[in-house]
Every structure is written in structure tokens, then in C-alpha cells.
Design a protein around this nucleic acid. Structure first.
Lengths: 362, 362
DNA sequence: GTGAAAGCGCTAACAT
DNA sequence: ATGTTAGCGCTTTCAC
């Protein structure tokens, strides 16, 4: 092998054909992997030519005629939020296994850009999209799906479950478990730090908190709920400050995300408020830091990796169904059971060190 | 707008042309954004047709003729390692700003797949690649670059700096600072947990430790160094166990990554070894968890986000230079100064809570 | 078994 | 100002 052309001209299938003394069609047949009849002799000469020329087939040209790219788009809300890399890992795992390539996009704090990101992916002819960031409204999603693009939502979903596939954790059950756990520890004033309410999981978690409180003890004081507009550490710290500054501060709080909870922990540390002694906290997500000694955050597992895996599997299924001409199945909502990771911040005795034999990566 | 075609047939530029009563060329001129002379009248009719048909230009067809895709590949070693999302965020930031799309790839524990991942990206006609995972050898990288693909290495680099652009943190200085810091705390037996030595940064960090020890007190005992083959939490815990089981265990350890350090911390917690009292630790990377109260890991900042940004900038520069016909500049190695984030695990007094007004995301 | 020809959907000269 | 033509690099009938 080696370069035959000055630099500029790229080697094409025509060059290979010429060198091998066959036609482009034959080369294509061999390289395409289909089960065509081609003589051993020709096959050999083609193989030789291919590596003599170091031929790299132009996938874009191939995709243009095939009208498919074996590529899916993955759009997340923020790569800096540890939940998403975890989810991406799951997606990447099954996509890779199915020979799909991934086009990455992040809306990074600008949810309004979501449509643009997706449009751009569509123009690049992705075969489908994993949307782990939906803030679009129903209409837009409906139009998207109607346009023939396969879409599956991950981690977030819409009110109407019949529009598009989605896989999420059971946020309602999770929020309920978290709140009840705190209540069961004997707390009366269980506060809630609620994330942006236009994001489904946050709305559901808040709802679960509210309902549980109402059931157990009637409507909670209005000041026990504080809403933040972003799920960030700083927002969590601010929210905690507001709660701690109350006339009668809560003794426990259900925080709607781990990232916010980190802020809460920091604010407590800053003020010398003991956790769980002064304030018990249960959060939601289960990013791996929570397991660390010195943190031991009690939280509801949002099972991001699993969500990613399932979403990707669903998508691959849909895409291949379409390719094979199988009828499209109805959109389905997959809900993963929520489970509480009881550690120390809730007040459970957990002075035992973390178990060995696990890795945050998994 | 609305669908005019049953579902199957996608709308093309020809449909728009026909509906607008002009030729495809004219439509292309308008949509392509170039500064062509096209009458206001035609422009208007085209615009109308475009959204009447909800026309989505086929980027793949465009790219095929333009011979460029405005897409770059980004390959990381592991998305589960918090360093990489951080780096990706930096890359994504500047790529987005420059209207590049990113094709994502992870080698996830199978470094030998690196070449395949890159080959696949090349066939998809990416304009360049950010390689944050190099374990390829010089020859392979050389061939890659020689093939006309723009490449920049991020976070890892090669021995020969003249082959390809790279941006990395100063691992040698960082390793030295870490080791010296521990020595300055009065420790004699400063151990080292070394990462895979075929990965440049790990080799450099180890080297820095060794040299510093030799300079300060002669060759360290052989058993003070333990090598791991993966930078994971479990590997860190194992390594710590080995160190702690020594006849005379070290009183301090420079751990070559935060991820390994997490394992060390866990093992200490499990054994009831106080940190920094029983074992002082300084690590490398500065993933954001280290800032948490209850963790307060002293570490050298590997500046992943910044590395990502600079790598992407370099790449965009190279690509656009090539497009504009500017001569290629010589490969350069950019080294970011290392800085120590002195927190509590080294023995520094840091009982003060973390500062407010920061966010791990930044 | 193999090749010629006709596109995939678009852009870019070159005419007009 | 706009249209015609000739591809980009590949796959895929359909003849031979």
C-alpha cells in the first residue's frame, strides 16, 4: 500500500476497479459484503488493489444511494451533568454493538436550540434520534415523528405517551419512596427542592412529594417548597439557604436531583449544619459520587445507564423494522422501577464503608 | 407547510424548484447562502415553496459534492471517566460555536479498537478528528496524518511532538508539584500509584514522582510504587490495599488519577485508616467531586475543559486553513501549566467549607 | 460472473 | 438574473 496520488485526489472505487482490472460494479459487489457471485480470482485482485491503494470507501456516497446512514443522533441537555454521560454510555454501548455511529449534540442550557440540533441531525440524514433532553412541546415532537424520523425519548418524556417511544425511571414512585423514607425517619417538616417544572421528571418528583405529604399529614406549608430554575450545584446551595433561613427550618428535605443535593450539602457544611442531624437529605439520580465515603448520599437511583441502553435498543428496533418493511409498532412508554439507595444523609445508620467490588463506571 | 407526499418519497430540491417555478440551480443559490444575484421575486417564491413543502436539504448530498462535511470526530477512551465529559464539553463548546457537528466515538476499554473507530469516521468523511484516547503508536498516527486527515490529540500525546498537534496539561510539572507537596508536609515514604504506563500522561506523572523522590532522598523503595492496568476505582482500592499491607506502609501517596484516588479513599475508609492522618493523598485530574465537603481531595488540576477547548480551536484552525488554501502550520504541542488544588487529603488545613459561586460544570 | 448505465440529491461552472 | 450541464463516489438493476 502507499499513496499513489500527489495528495489532493482521493482514491475512489474507480481507481480500485482499474487497478484490479474489473468494473466498479464488481468492486462494489465485493466490498459491499452482499452475497454476489464474484470469482475468487476477481476477489483476490480486488483485495490486492484495495490495500495497494489504501482505499477508504466514501460512506457518504454510499449512504446517498442507500438512503440510510447507520447513524443516530443523540441529544442531551448537558454533558456536564453526570447523569448524561452515564446515559450516553448506555446508548453508546448498544449502538456500537449494532454497528451504528452516533452524532452527538448538546443543548447545554439553551433548550430552545433543541429543534435546531435535531433539524441539523435530520439534514445529515440520521436514521433516528435519542432525545434525552426534550423540552419541545407535543406539537413539535409530533411533527418530528410524523416526518418519518424515528425518535425515542430517554429519561424525560411527554404527557401524552402515545406520541413517541420513551424510557424513563418511575419518578412518581421514586419521589414517593424518598418522601416516605424521610417521614418514616420521624420528620414532620419535610421540605422539597423542586427542579424546573417544565421538565417532566422534575414535575413528577414534585408531585409525588406533594401527594405523599398531603396523604400523610395534610397540605405542607407553602414555604417548604422551593423551586429552582436550573439543576445545578449553586442553585441547590441557594435553595438550601432559603430553607435554612426559615423561621422554623425543615428538619429534612427531598431534593429533586443529586446535583442540587451537592449544593445543599455544601451550604450545610458552610453553615455548620450537620447532615443528617440538622438536616436530613434524600435526593434523586444516584450519580456515583454519592457512594463515596464522606458523602454517602441517600438517593433514588435514576438508572441512567439502563435507561440509555433500553432507549437505544428501542430505537434500533424501530429503525431496522422500518428497513425490513415490518409494520411500525405503537409508541410505548417503558418505566423502570425506582429504588432507594439508603446511605447516610437520610439518617440511616451507614457507618459501614462502601462495599468493594463495584465501579462507578458500571 | 405540510406533507404532500404519501410518506415514502422525500422532498428534494427539485420539488422546491418546480413549485417555485425556477430551476434547481436557483434554489441552490438561494439556500446555499452564497451572495448570488437572485431576484427578490424568485427568492420569495422559493421561500414559500420551501416551507410549503417543509423542505429539508439533504446535507449528505451537499457534502458529497462539496467534499467536506463540517463534521469532526471526537474519540475518547471512556465516557464513564468524568474527565472525558469535561473535555468533551470544551470541545463541543468551540465546535458548536464554529458550526461543526460532532461524531462521537468511545473506545471504552478496548484501545485496540481506536483505529477502527477513526477509520469509520474517516470513511464518513469527517473533516478532522480530536483524539482524546491515543494509544496508537507513532507509525499509525503518522499514517493517519499523512493521509490528509487533520488530527489533534487532546490530553494524551506522543513522544515525538513533531508528528501531530497536541494539547495536554503539564503532567511532569504536575507530578512533581504533587510529590513535593507531600514531601513538604514532612512525609518520607511517599508512595505512588501509577496508571497504565503506555499512556503518556501516566508515564509522565510516574516519572515526575520518581525523579522528585530521587532528587530529594535517593531512590525510593521499590515497593512504594504500585502499578495498575486501569484507571478505575476498584484498581485504586486494590493498590491502596497493597500499600497498606506493607511491612512499613507509606504515610503518603501520590495517586495518578482522581478515579484511582476514590478507590484509595474507600479502601482507607473500609480499614479505618484516617486520611490524611494515617495516609495523606494527593491525586491528579480534579474531577469536580473532589471539591465536595466530606471529600476535599487534594489534586492537580488536569484542566480537561480547557484542554478540550484548545484542542478544538487548533483543529478548526487547521481545517479552515486547509479549506482556504493556506499553508499548513507545523504541528505544535501546547502544554497547559499544572496547578495544585490543595484541599484536605494532603494534610493541609482545610476545614473551611468550599467557596460558593462556583459550579462543577465550569 | 461481470459490466454498462442510470441515478441518489445536490452544487458549481458555464452559458445565456 | 437564471437555467443547463456535468459531475461528487457510490450502488443497483438489467443485460450480456
Amino acid at each position: 500500500m502507499g499513496k499513489r496520488f500527489p495528495v489532493e485526489r482521493r482514491v475512489t472505487i474507480g481507481d480500485v476497479a482499474e487497478l484490479a482490472g474489473v468494473s466498479k460494479a464488481t468492486v462494489s459487489k465485493v466490498l459491499g459484503g452482499g452475497d454476489y457471485y464474484v470469482s475468487q480470482d476477481a476477489r483476490q485482485r480486488i483485495a490486492a488493489a484495495v490495500d495497494e491503494l489504501d482505499f477508504q470507501p466514501n460512506a457518504i456516497a454510499r449512504d446517498l444511494v442507500r438512503r440510510r446512514t447507520q447513524t443516530v443522533g443523540m441529544v442531551v441537555a448537558s454533558i456536564a451533568n453526570p447523569v448524561y454521560p452515564e446515559l450516553m454510555a448506555g446508548v453508546d454501548e448498544v449502538l456500537g454493538r449494532n454497528d451504528f455511529t452516533v452524532l452527538f449534540g448538546s443543548t447545554e442550557g439553551r433548550p430552545e436550540r433543541e429543534s435546531d440540533v435535531v433539524r441539523s441531525m435530520r439534514q445529515r440524514q440520521v436514521d433516528g434520534v435519542v432525545l434525552a433532553s426534550v423540552t419541545m412541546d407535543h406539537d413539535e415532537v409530533e411533527k418530528l415523528v410524523g416526518s418519518g424520523l424515528d425518535v425515542v425519548l430517554a429519561s424525560r418524556h411527554l404527557h401524552r405517551a402515545d406520541l413517541v417511544d420513551a424510557v424513563v425511571v418511575d419518578n412518581v414512585a421514586g419521589g414517593r419512596i424518598a418522601t416516605e423514607h424521610l417521614l418514616d425517619h420521624g420528620h414532620e417538616r419535610v421540605a422539597h427542592i423542586a427542579g424546573p417544572q417544565n421538565v417532566m421528571p422534575f414535575a413528577e418528583r414534585r408531585h409525588a412529594w406533594w401527594d405523599t405529604m398531603v396523604e400523610r399529614q395534610g397540605q405542607p406549608d407553602a414555604d417548604l417548597e422551593v423551586r429552582v430554575t436550573e439543576s445545578t450545584v449553586d442553585a441547590g446551595a441557594d435553595a438550601a439557604a432559603r430553607l435554612l433561613d426559615l423561621g422554623t427550618p425543615p428538619t429534612a428535605v427531598f431534593v429533586s436531583s443529586d446535583r442540587l443535593a451537592v449544593g445543599v450539602l455544601e451550604e450545610c457544611s458552610r453553615r455548620g449544619v450537620a447532615v443528617p442531624g440538622g438536616l436530613a437529605v434524600v435526593a434523586f439520580d444516584n450519580i456515583w459520587v454519592g457512594r463515596m465515603p464522606g458523602v454517602r448520599l441517600t438517593t433514588v437511583d435514576s438508572r441512567a445507564r439502563e435507561v440509555g441502553r433500553l432507549a437505544a435498543e428501542r430505537l434500533v428496533q424501530r429503525i431496522t423494522d422500518r428497513w425490513e418493511g415490518r409494520p411500525a409498532t405503537a409508541p410505548s412508554l417503558t418505566t423502570l422501577p425506582a429504588r432507594l439507595m439508603a446511605r447516610a444523609t437520610c439518617g440511616c445508620a451507614d457507618d459501614r464503608p462502601p462495599p468493594t467490588g463495584y465501579d462507578p463506571a458500571h
